[in-house]
Amino acid sequence: MKISIRQVERDYKALMERVQTLPDYQIDLTNRVNCYSCVNKKCGHITKTKDVDAGTTPMYFWCEMCNSRAVSSFYNDLAPDQKPSYEWYRPDFQRFKKVRGNQGIYNHLISGGLEYRQIIVDGKANI
């Protein structure tokens, strides 16, 4: 069941108020990176991400090399010489409206969860 636009507006407004006022969202993001280690022993690649907004990120991600499960380092930088290839960000109101029919994604986002996007530098993926 889709959530009404009016309810999305209320939820989004409440989220933005929490983001602006709660201490959990008032963190320094300057060097906030996380590493996800591939569980595939043949691969073992580390996918590095950075947070551009404060919020919740998942414990599991996917390996950008072999698509296996990758596990969070809980913000320990396991690859200091590697540049992040993905960034976590808070989507805008339009995105919230688009996902209002998917209860799982909507609940994640409205609870302060972030989405990811690939970092592109000079027209190329930052892998």
Rank of each mutant, 00 (worst) to 15 (best):
R10P: 06
A125L: 13
N31P: 01
D77M: 05
Y75R: 03
Q94C: 10
I120N: 05
N102K: 14
I105T: 13
R69M: 12
I120T: 03
D28E: 00
N31C: 02
P84N: 01
R117C: 04
D77F: 07
C35W: 05
V121C: 06
S72I: 04
F61K: 04
I127G: 15
G123V: 02
N107V: 07
N67G: 01
R69S: 13
G55A: 07
L29E: 01
S85T: 03
E17Q: 12
D92R: 13
P84C: 00
S72Q: 05
K42R: 11
G112K: 04
V19M: 01
G55S: 04
G55C: 07
P23A: 00
D24S: 04
G101Q: 12
W62I: 06
I27S: 00
R100I: 03
T56K: 15
G113R: 02
K42C: 06
Y116Q: 05
Q26H: 01
C38W: 04
Q118Y: 01
S37T: 15
F61L: 04
K41P: 11
Y86T: 00
N102S: 07
R32L: 10
T56Q: 12
E17A: 12
D51S: 12
I27R: 00
V99R: 09
R10W: 12
T49Q: 06
D24N: 00
M16R: 14
V121L: 10
H108E: 08
P80D: 01
N34W: 04
S68A: 14
T21N: 09
S111V: 07
F74R: 10
I5K: 15
Y60M: 06
Y36W: 01
D28I: 00
L109S: 09
N107A: 13
W62E: 04
K42Q: 15
E17S: 06
I119E: 01
C66D: 08
F61N: 07
V52W: 08
S111E: 08
T57H: 09
V8H: 13
K42F: 09
V99F: 11
Y12L: 04
Q20N: 10
Q118E: 11
P80N: 02
D122T: 07
I120G: 02
N31L: 03
K83G: 00
K13T: 15
S4P: 13
R69N: 10
G101S: 12
G113A: 04
Q82K: 09
M65C: 08
N102D: 13
A14R: 13
M59W: 03
V52A: 06
Q7H: 13
I46R: 11
K42E: 15
Q82M: 02
E87N: 03
T21K: 02
C43A: 03
L15W: 10
Q94L: 12
I5N: 15
D81S: 08
Y86W: 08
V33H: 11
D92H: 11
K50W: 05
K42T: 12
R32W: 10
R18G: 01
V52I: 15
M59R: 14
L29F: 02
N67F: 07
G101I: 05
Q118F: 08
V99G: 06
D51W: 13
M16E: 13
G104P: 08
V8G: 10
I110H: 05
Y25P: 00
F96W: 03
N34I: 09
R6P: 09
